[in-house]
Nucleic acid binder design. Structure first.
Lengths: 343, 343
DNA sequence: GTGAAAGCGCTAACAT
DNA sequence: ATGTTAGCGCTTTCAC
């Protein structure tokens, strides 16, 4: 039999005061004799008192918990988001309930319900379903995370700055002497694809380049999708060095495997630039040069936005966090060699 | 202004019954007229009633929440553990608070305290500190996870079956025509190293092989550690095919990079077997053949053991989950070729 | 079969 | 400055 946890009454009794005095002392507020407060603190220490968050939440209407619903906790990017959110939440003394929806709208809905029952003070969600049905009925302050947030107006959201990321990547390619990269992108149905291509177009126009001749190849956002797309590229007639910008690190790594499969080598024959910044990119050979999304910062920022939402402060609106380039070696440096072409 | 969440009283009023009747109906218990119960259920549906877990927890003394403290949520293995625990917990209708200690004992202690304050019903912990100081004062049912559990007696724990895993790996090596693999293991200070080597010795004895001549190389449990260890091996005089069994996938991948660095190739010149089953192992070239720890099962099983612990049922004691081999191509098949030796 | 009432641990309004 | 009291939402006796 486990013995009862000490309550504030135990503390009060031991200090020889009433429970409200004990509460005041513990809260560190005013109207308390320093000597009394000392006695209470000592008593609390002595009995090993820990405030009961359930009871506090009940009185205050604040559970001190936040929810985070992401599509896949085993995906390194989302794990980073979770860690960032976790740390930020811990700093302000609240707990984070992390749920992985595994891309299943049903599971997502269940998790949202669980959060509501747990009386979390708010939630951060990357919605997998295309409708906000669950969410507008959610009845809780919430913040959206990731690119899907674009679909919904009037909702605070935090994501990465695709425009800046693409600029970073394309400028780097140019600096290394590459031009007109082949774009390996996701399937037409995905919003992320559109955003990526839009960013590329915008950048080209800004740099006075015609985006039209850019070769665009579709694929699933997976290793296999990247592999197949790359094989397609390599099997087209072409000469010279091939440069590829993949919209996703998994595809980039798949592309790298395809290059090797065709007896070519990276970066000698083919240069590859990825996008995401997953740790696996460091384990390929050569290491994958990529644009890293700031997963941790996104998570941390989402918690901050959520707090503003909870406190009823003016909304942040959409926040886009800057990405950074990780140079690892999958890009050839052609800047001092004669120009090459992709055909 | 967000409007008040409906309580059981709202439901009772709408159904025209008292709150205790409403509670009974919702609980699905006995002593209730089917017709009344129907009315209550309808009313609950209509007002969008969601039980308040804080209040329930307060009355029942059960918060309906469990804690999970792991060293690194961004590590794929631990993420799998978290997912397994998460899923299992969701199945029985409890929430899981996941905390990442980032290998920091201080952070771990803070998380443990947060769990206690949140009044979780129990916790699953992979302790980073060598002492159980925090834990025996923890004052909550808990289950240990991972190999560090070995240090503590009288505590339920769940981990992977190293003995079975090593047997699996070594038998596979033999089947592929390899013998006397070089062992790349962790630093002497780590308990996991001892367990791994013990398992190898035990297996050799069982198969009537002398384990003494096995070459053992130390390194940190990291990519770099594996790389350095492998370079050491390759720089020793040797001939023929080299076979390596790394105690950890990160080291195995590091070893693979080292092989390429020396102008050799895997699996033609060097065969590599890993241990862990991290997803990155699929992205190397060749893919890493490895023994996968059942992270998800471990998480799920830990939740079950924790429940037993909470319910006061007879303890499980130590549970070791079986591992499985993932064959990807980093091992040469020498079984039909003449014998090779490692010197 | 149903309702009234107590109480879980805490905070805040009110009284002293 | 400190004590008393009510009540957050729920479950669980105990009456009827």
């Amino acid at each position: 039999m486990r013995k009862r946890r000490p309550t504030i009454i135990d503390v009060a009794d031991r200090a020889g005061v009433s429970k409200s005095t004990a509460a005041r002392a513990l809260a560190g507020g005013e109207n308390i004799l320093p000597e009394t407060r000392g006695r209470v603190l000592t008593a609390a220490q002595a009995v090993g008192y820990e405030p009961n968050h359930l009871a506090v939440g009940m009185r205050s209407g604040r559970s001190g918990m936040l929810g985070l619903v992401i599509p896949d906790i085993a995906n390194p990017f989302w794990a980073e988001v979770a860690r960032g959110a976790q740390d930020r939440a811990a700093e302000v003394g609240v707990s984070l309930l992390v749920f992985s929806s595994d891309w299943d709208p049903q599971k997502e809905e269940n998790h949202l319900r669980a959060l509501r029952r747990a009386r979390v003070d708010g939630a951060i969600v990357n919605p997998v379903s295309d409708t906000l049905d669950d969410l507008d009925r959610f009845g809780l302050p919430f913040v959206l995370i990731g690119s899907s947030a674009e679909r919904f107006a009037d909702v605070s959201s935090v994501g990465s700055n695709i425009t800046q990321a693409v600029t970073l990547g394309l400028d780097h390619l140019v600096a290394k002497g590459h031009q007109a990269p082949v774009l390996i992108v996701g399937p037409k149905s995905r919003l992320a694809r559109t955003r990526f291509l839009n960013a590329v177009n915008r950048h080209c126009i800004e740099r006075d380049v015609d985006p039209a001749p850019l070769l665009i190849v579709d694929g699933e956002y997976t290793l296999e999708g990247g592999r197949e797309a790359m094989l397609q590229v390599l099997d087209r007639p072409h000469f010279g060095h091939v440069c590829v910008f993949a919209a996703n690190d998994m595809m980039a790594i798949g592309a790298m495997l395809a290059v090797r499969e065709r007896g070519l080598s990276c970066p000698e024959d083919v240069s590859i630039l990825g996008f995401d910044g997953i740790p696996s990119g460091a384990f390929t050979f050569p290491g994958l040069t990529t644009i890293a999304k700031p997963g941790r910062d996104i998570g941390a920022r989402a918690v901050e936005s959520l707090f503003d939402e909870i406190e009823g402060r003016p909304e942040h609106g959409r926040v886009y966090m800057p990405c950074r380039l990780i140079d690892r070696g999958s890009l050839a440096d052609l800047s001092r060699e004669p120009r090459q072409m992709v055909g």
